[in-house]
């Protein structure tokens, strides 16, 4: 049901490839080794989730792919090119609200394209499509202050999708939402992704969410972290509503729980909960 060490999956040029990447913050005695060594690849059209104890370096990993942090060891490459900074073919969604509160929903979603220099008609056309995709039709002229937390996250997701990224990087995008909203938006994200099929690197501390959405779940160890195990989620797609109650779903969930629990206990002591 799972294979250890993602190293054997390092692959083609068109993949997103992690080659022995590590990240140490600071130098000398005050330094923190966040990520020890991660190798692996996100294959074309795959949805990969990363789970692991709080503070193990999940965000650090994502920021290295997004070009916001330069690994202190190894390289990330996308499409055969080493990532040296933010790229046009990656887009990020953050945990907290990152909408621009002085802009309308339409201008928020079009923001990335505007920065890219796309003419108004083109960027609005594509923004309107994304707004429809995330279910915000009718809210084009609203401002973020008039929207719920879940709707603001959808704006951020639409803004990222509008960039038509090769890799979509999401750092606990539903982490700040209530349970009901996050399940609902999770389902929507899945519908959307099944249409776009770009690569997704998705950070979450919700194991059920990871199983439901992903093709692969990477379990990270406690800091300094490595990918302890890659769990292939072999549930058929599309995944309808009842997926959560399939016996296979439960099995995968239990397996991941067991893995993560061991790591969480390393950080926080026995009986600790994840994240």
């Amino acid at each position: 049901m799972s294979h250890i060490s993602p190293i054997d999956s390092v692959g083609h040029d068109s993949d997103v490839v992690f080659d022995n990447i590590g990240m140490t913050f600071g130098t000398g005695t005050g330094s923190t080794q966040a990520v020890a060594n991660v190798s692996g690849a996100i294959p074309e059209g795959k949805f990969v989730s990363v789970v692991g104890p709080s503070g193990c370096g999940k965000s650090t990993l994502l920021d290295m792919v997004g070009g916001l942090l330069k690994p202190t060891q190894g390289t990330v490459s996308i499409n055969g090119e080493t990532v040296t900074g933010p790229r046009k073919d990656t887009a990020m969604v953050f945990q907290e609200d990152s909408t621009l509160h002085w802009r309308t929903v339409l201008d928020n979603v079009a923001f990335g394209l505007e920065v890219k220099g796309l003419p108004k008609t083109e960027r609005y056309e594509s923004a309107r499509r994304m707004i429809e995709l995330v279910g915000l039709s009718g809210f084009e002229d609203h401002r973020p202050g008039q929207l719920s937390g879940g709707m603001k996250q959808r704006v951020a997701i639409a803004r990222a999708l509008a960039m038509e990224p090769r890799v979509l990087l999401m750092d606990e995008p539903f982490g700040a939402l209530d349970q009901q909203t996050r399940q609902f938006i999770g389902r929507e994200l899945l519908h959307i992704w099944e249409k776009t099929r770009n690569r997704v690197l998705f950070i979450t501390h919700d194991i059920q969410e990871a199983v439901y959405l992903s093709d692969e779940v990477w379990v990270m160890s406690a800091r300094p972290s490595v990918v302890k195990e890659v769990v292939t989620i072999d549930l058929p797609r599309p995944r309808p509503e009842g997926t959560h109650s399939l016996p296979r779903f439960r099995e995968l969930e239990d397996h991941l729980w067991a893995l993560v629990k061991v790591e969480a206990e390393k950080t926080l002591g026995p009986g600790a909960r994840l994240a």
């Binding site: 997004g66 990656t90 920065v115």
Partner: peptide
């Protein structure tokens, strides 16, 4: 952070 990720 958003500004950086969008290469502003």
């Amino acid at each position: 952070k958003l500004a950086r990720s969008l290469s502003l």
